[in-house]
């Protein structure tokens, strides 16, 4: 971002109308951002979807009560048969406890496979519900850690400049010189025997190769801000370097990085699900959408009969990613002054 593209101080709203209580409480910029998010239909749709997913994740024990004495993230299975069962099929073996709302809604005492079962009789409904937690965890953990590493590297690089910058940026180049998915896959395979099969190995592997974009973006934003008049003014009146960095430059430079982070959550959730689709990551039967979808590969020629193996986890995953992308897209439009008035 060059100097001309930076946000100009917006004075206009103050002269036009007095700020309401919310605006006074939140501050003008946050208020403007919030307002932008709730007035744009696309982002409202995204926020509603996102709220729904957070609700599902939080209410998972009520929506799909787990078997007693077993981890809720292990999908319960109805026997070991190969052939998938359609949605609504009766639950025969090892039936988990009925959720309290089931009898009220249907008036029946028998728990069914709401979304059918995949091969191996893994219940798809349980996988979808508990998988929401996995997806939220993966998307947020990878993005947060990646962004933190990136922000640290980018800020140090831009602040110290010189050979520190040189070294950090060459390391960044090096990490970018690898095909992302392939390398993450490899690191995950290296880590799995050491950390055990689970979410940890793929999550760490993805974090290790996810920070470079953040570092580069933040560095270039800080570099362009460093030359601005108000920073010069602060320097002239003798403000300490660290204060200039943390109070004057970073708060202004961080927004594009945060927008990038919000737009990455969805794609990391995809990548994570992709890894488990390939069979890298958690044990078979762990509640994870990618893994549920991988069951469909056993039935390639009969997918028309077993559509529910793809349809339920697939649609859920797409909606999940879509919700983050809609919010991220709107956030970018609100925060990026270049996009103002261009929508």
């Amino acid at each position: 971002m060059t100097a001309q593209e930076m946000p100009m101080p917006t004075l206009a709203p103050r002269t036009r109308r007095p700020p309401n209580w919310l605006e006074r409480w939140l501050g003008h910029d946050v208020y403007r951002t919030m307002k932008g998010l709730v007035t744009n239909p696309m982002s409202v749709a995204g926020l509603v979807l996102l709220g729904l997913f957070i609700f599902i994740a939080a209410a998972a024990p009520l929506l799909a009560p787990p078997l007693p004495n077993s981890s809720p993230y292990n999908i319960p299975r109805d026997g070991y048969g190969d052939v998938p069962k359609p949605p609504g099929a009766e639950w025969k073996l090892r039936q988990p406890p009925l959720p309290f709302w089931w009898k009220a809604v249907t008036g029946k005492d028998q728990w069914v496979h709401l979304m059918g079962t995949a091969s191996g009789q893994w219940d798809i409904y349980y996988g979808v519900i508990w998988g929401t937690r996995t997806a939220l965890f993966a998307g947020l953990a990878i993005t947060l850690c990646g962004a933190l590493i990136g922000i640290t590297v980018g800020a140090i690089s831009a602040y110290y400049g010189g050979w520190v910058d040189m070294v950090f940026m060459r390391i960044t180049d090096l990490f970018m010189a690898f095909p992302f998915l392939l390398t993450a896959m490899t690191l995950s395979a290296v880590l799995t025997p050491r950390l055990g099969k689970g979410l940890l190995a793929p999550t760490i592997a993805l974090i290790v190769f996810s920070w470079m974009g953040f570092a580069r973006l933040l560095r270039s934003d800080i570099l362009s801000l460093r030359e601005r008049e108000y920073v010069l003014a602060a320097r002239v009146i003798g403000v300490r370097d660290s204060r200039i960095l943390f109070r004057h430059i970073l708060p202004n430079a961080i927004f594009p990085t945060l927008v990038l982070a919000s737009m990455r959550i969805g794609s990391y959730a995809i990548t994570f699900a992709g890894l488990s689709f390939l069979g890298i990551g958690a044990e078979v039967g762990f509640a994870d959408w990618g893994q549920l979808l991988s069951f469909a590969r056993d039935w390639m020629t009969q997918l028309r009969d077993y559509w529910y193996i793809i349809a339920f986890p697939g649609v859920t995953l797409v909606l999940f990613v879509l919700s983050w992308n809609l919010v991220g897209d709107a956030l970018r439009d609100v925060l990026d002054p270049r996009m103002q008035g261009s929508r």
Partner: peptide, 23 residues
Amino acid sequence: GIVGWSFPDFVFGLLLLMAFYAG
């Protein structure tokens, strides 16, 4: 664009297989 951006490649691929191979 935004829907394509949100579509995981393996989900899209499986859907195409469902329609044009199995179907």
